[in-house]
Simulated scan of single mutants.
Amino acid sequence: MKPATWNRNRAAVGSWLAWCADKKNWATPALPATVERQRENNDDTQAVSRSRIDRLCRRRDVPLREKTLWRMRYESASRTSAVLALNIQDLGLPNKQAKITTKGGDIMWITWGTDTAHLLPRLIAGRERGPLFLSEHRPGSYRRATTDLRDICPETGRVRLGYDRARVLLAHYGDGLRLHQLRHSSATHLGEANVIMAKTGYKSLRSVQRYVKPGLAAVHQATETLSSPRRRG
């Protein structure tokens, strides 16, 4: 078990035991002394530079589908599974946004920037329904019969692009780059643009959370900072 997972589970169990003792007055055991927090090593290589992402997405040997997926993944800062689950009818192209279902089941908006907006019409190529990101080829009869109809494009017969294939392609073209690094990089670059802690002098993120409740318009504006300079102009 990774240290971060161990520490998260330890904290959850400790909080639950404390709640049982304080709120319910139940006789509960304490966490054993041997159950200590584990050291978490920071990995500062997770985030990559904007210029590296921009260069990768401009390469002529990279297919349009991959360019669009990586741009949207980076600009939306969304989970790969949520982006791959998008259907064309989910997209609000004029507003550069779409509704997704989060890992916990909540519904939220994701937004993308100008670079993704320029690529999407070419990727969709006139299609009106079905998965946004499709496999390269039509599946065989067996796979087609065992695939959910919602994951098959009614116009092309191709199926929804899978996570494993998307992961392999990014590693191939991106010299080992991982899908999670696009989301990590997006969050890092957005954080660099937000100087509220430096301006207010607060030392804790909890202290500034009450001020950080951006509306959708502010999210769109922040998203544009992730677009390449030639598009933002």
Rank of each mutant, 00 (worst) to 15 (best):
S186R: 04
L123P: 13
A125H: 13
R160G: 01
V159H: 11
M108G: 12
V62A: 10
H189E: 13
L179A: 05
R58L: 15
E136Q: 08
I107W: 08
L216P: 00
M197V: 05
E192N: 15
R50Q: 10
G14N: 04
N87W: 02
R158P: 10
R122F: 14
I53L: 10
M108P: 03
D115K: 09
T114D: 12
A98Y: 04
M72Y: 01
K24G: 05
P94V: 14
V208T: 08
L226R: 02
Y74T: 02
R52M: 14
P229T: 12
P121E: 10
S15A: 12
R158Q: 11
D115G: 15
R10L: 12
R232F: 03
I100D: 04
T146I: 11
T5W: 03
Y142P: 01
L17A: 05
S227N: 02
T200V: 06
R183N: 06
L93G: 04
L84N: 01
N194Q: 11
A21F: 05
L190Q: 09
S51A: 13
T225A: 06
L84V: 02
V168D: 14
S49K: 05
E224M: 04
R65W: 00
D175N: 15
G215Q: 01
R165Y: 15
S81D: 15
K199T: 15
S207Q: 14
I88F: 06
R210L: 03
V159D: 11
S51F: 10
A77P: 02
D164Q: 14
Q46H: 08
Q97F: 07
R52I: 13
G157E: 01
K67C: 08
T116E: 12
Q97W: 05
Y142N: 05
C153R: 04
Q221V: 10
A30E: 12
T114L: 14
S228T: 11
K203R: 14
T5N: 04
G104V: 01
T5C: 04
G130D: 14
E36C: 01
S76C: 04
K203F: 03
P214D: 03
L169V: 11
L182Q: 06
A18I: 09
P139K: 01
R59H: 01
K24I: 06
G130N: 06
A82L: 05
P154L: 15
L119P: 09
H172D: 11
T200D: 06
H220S: 07
M197C: 08
P131N: 07
I107S: 14
N95H: 07
V212E: 13
R232I: 14
S76F: 02
S76I: 03
N42A: 11
K99N: 07
E192V: 05
L93H: 08
S185W: 00
L179R: 02
S186L: 09
A98N: 06
V212H: 07
N95L: 12
S15W: 07
Q181T: 04
R122H: 15
D44C: 05
R8W: 03
K103A: 03
L132C: 03
C153S: 15
I53A: 05
S185H: 00
M72D: 02
A187F: 07
K199E: 14
V83Y: 07
G191N: 13
R183L: 08
K2I: 09
I53Y: 03
A117G: 13
K96G: 11
C153H: 04
P63T: 10
L149F: 14
E36A: 04
N7S: 03
N87A: 13
